[in-house]
């Protein structure tokens, strides 16, 4: 018996040289340096008011101070705790509710309108309510992060199960597989794909929830520091905090991406 000629395997190894990517990175780094240099110069010669637009060197100094004095860590820790706990809780709740709604029409009838409503509104408007209910501690920002993530994951799982490939289901049935085989071989991998496809967005949502929760009312966290910087008109601290949050989220995105590539290895061939 003979095999057909194998498809050229272009997805296995792309033999492109690494140069275009590196050139692009160098160009972008140069552009950033030029921008920072111009900004610094304009600030120093007095064309930009440092009160509104402090020079990069001041922002840099603030960041270094935050790190070296250790002031940053408890706040970063507080935000990260709320965000990660919210992410975990949101993913678990979203998967649980999504499965329940997909498998039980009664649950779907009850949950769907609530989730559609929560999906349609900017969910951060719930923040003041959570503060009133749960106080200014961890609970209120955790609740906000959780609800942001839950709604996202709920729809990923619910739609993922509803739109599962019928052909695969029939394949399992004709091979003699029952419900447990279907769940293990078709539903769980399908849902994993849907959830991981939304995971980076979920990480962003979890951080949004935590920071906004802190911004509204709290006693610690990056959102609290931001609120403090804003109320004292400290532009350098505000920009420094924005950069710190951006960096942290980007690092998390990179981790989420690696996780996605590991769990969905079959997609990245």
């Amino acid at each position: 018996m003979t095999a057909e000629t194998q498809r050229s395997g272009s997805r296995v190894s792309t033999a492109a040289s690494p140069r275009p990517g590196r050139t692009r990175a160098i160009r972008r780094a140069l552009a950033l340096l030029v921008l920072l240099a111009v900004w610094e110069t304009l600030s120093r010669i007095g064309w930009l008011d440092p009160f509104y637009v402090p020079p990069p060197s001041s922002v840099g100094r603030v960041i270094v101070d935050l790190v070296t004095t250790g002031q940053l860590w408890p706040h970063l820790g507080a935000t990260a705790t709320a965000a990660f706990a919210g992410l975990l809780l949101g993913v678990v709740l979203g998967i649980g509710l999504g499965f329940a709604a997909a498998l039980s029409p009664l649950v779907a009838d009850l949950l769907e309108p609530v989730m559609i409503l929560l999906n349609a509104i900017p969910r951060v408007i719930l923040a003041p309510l959570f503060v009133i209910w749960l106080g200014i501690g961890l609970a209120s920002k955790l609740a906000l992060a959780t609800i942001l993530v839950t709604v996202l994951i709920f729809f990923a799982v619910y739609n993922g199960i509803k739109e599962v490939d019928r052909r695969l289901v029939e394949r399992i049935q004709t091979l003699g597989g029952g419900r447990s085989v279907l769940v293990r071989e078709v539903y769980v991998p399908s849902v994993t794909a849907w959830v991981m496809g939304n995971f980076k967005v979920a990480v962003g949502f979890a951080f949004t929830g935590a920071v906004v929760g802190e911004f509204v009312a709290s006693s610690r966290g990056l959102g609290y520091l931001l609120q403090f910087a804003q109320s004292t008109y400290n532009a350098a601290l505000t920009i420094a905090l924005i950069l710190i949050i951006m960096t942290f989220v980007l690092v998390l995105f990179a981790v989420a991406e690696r996780l996605e590539r590991r769990l969905l290895a079959w997609r990245y061939l």
Partner: peptide
Amino acid sequence: FLFQDDALLPWR
């Protein structure tokens, strides 16, 4: 049963 399409489990 050999189906018309060749839907295999893509994740396996």
